[in-house]
Design a protein around this nucleic acid. Structure first.
Lengths: 206, 206
DNA sequence: ATTGAAAGTTCTCATAAAGTTCTCTATCCT
DNA sequence: AGGATAGAGAACTTTATGAGAACTTTCAAT
């Protein structure tokens, strides 16, 4: 685990570029790139140089080489990395579009932060906001949420609930579920304690 | 750790600044800074001076140096910043329940895996499955998805789309959207190429 | 099987950039 | 005064990177 992280750190910048390119190429084409394709992807003309980077990756243990073979690179996946390639946008009616700008998502950067924790959601009160029963939400402790935030609210120090927050003119607060079958409820500010704001949501299908 | 605190006390103020800068740089860029970047970060012009601080940190045991190498600094205390505490379950009508068993969620273990990538979702075809416009889905390359999986399907090598997969008796395949306003469509197996199965989904509210 | 184009491998060379070591100088503090 | 801390910058060594030549191997068409 740490070993893998270290390995990535050890790579020279261009070697890392090479690794990223190879991963993207695999994800997009389902096969290994040629050295000339790697070179073109890196914007260089020498396949010899590209080969040097490939060797560096092999020594670092990130890939395997079937030496001599055309397209002989094999990815050795390591599970502890925290970045996945962001391949593109999927829409109705279009092939997968490449996204040149943001080409990688770092899960730790995406969700980590001071004072954050995870809650597993039970119930359907937020289904229409795309938060389903069994999902996990990343919550950041926050005393002063903004209007419209999804918050974890403690009512009368007894019930905790996940709802949209709406501040009213008279100082009271309305908790609005995202479910047409449930009604918003208004509380005096004293009865509520906001425990945090939802900053992210995640779900696993496996 | 105590060790670190003790060590930190021994450091000169600017050496401590250097350490902080290096840690931040790692957190933000995922790699070591150059001496000139350290110098710039400290507001000084001499990379020689920056190097002196780096050496002090190495002697204090806070970092390791791969001498001579570009970006050769390695942090000793490797913060595995991919786990968040799983506080409990939030339900309608109950305080937050503590969960004694699984008390931590490792985001990388949650989503990482061989042959996975991320797509940003555009459109509403899967809203009723809790996948909204702008969400990201984690996709695993898989040629033989199971019935009922959410898949990335390429139709006629032209359109990529995100739908539920339903296999029919006659070998044809029906792609079922999770949106009442859209109708399922059935295709001959030859027209479809399944590019992957959705294994996870994530959303950021920030 | 043969064969030739294309791909992989191994080199060397050149150069820009980075790391290392050093000296000189100026503060600040006790 | 003397030591610790700081910054500047010169001089030197090493690394990272790219180009490309020369060679070997693979692969597919014949």
């Amino acid at each position: 685990m740490d070993h893998d992280d270290d390995t990535l750190v050890l790579l020279a910048p261009r070697a890392r570029d090479t690794y990223e390119f190879i991963r993207h190429f695999f994800a997009r084409h389902g096969r290994a790139p040629l050295l000339t394709e790697i070179a073109a992807g890196l914007g260089i003309r020498s396949k010899g140089t590209a080969h040097r980077y490939v060797q560096a990756l092999a020594e670092a243990g990130l890939i395997e080489q079937r030496r001599g073979r055309h397209r002989g690179i094999r990815l050795r996946e390591h599970t502890s990395a925290t970045t996945l390639p962001l391949l593109g946008r999927i829409a109705a009616g279009r092939p997968i579009e490449a996204i040149p700008d943001e080409d990688c998502v770092d899960l730790s950067q995406f969700f980590m932060g001071p004072g954050r924790f995870i809650l597993r959601v039970q119930g359907d009160s937020m289904v229409e906001a795309g938060i389903l029963d069994g999902d996990m939400v990343v919550v950041e402790r926050c005393e002063t949420p903004a209007d419209g935030d999804i918050v974890v609210a403690l009512i009368d120090n007894e019930e905790a609930t996940l709802k949209y927050l709406r501040r009213n003119r008279d100082g009271s607060i309305t908790l609005v579920p995202a479910n047409a079958r449930l009604a918003p409820v208004t509380y005096n500010a004293e009865r509520l304690r906001i425990q945090g704001v939802v900053v992210g949501q995640l779900r696993s299908y496996r």
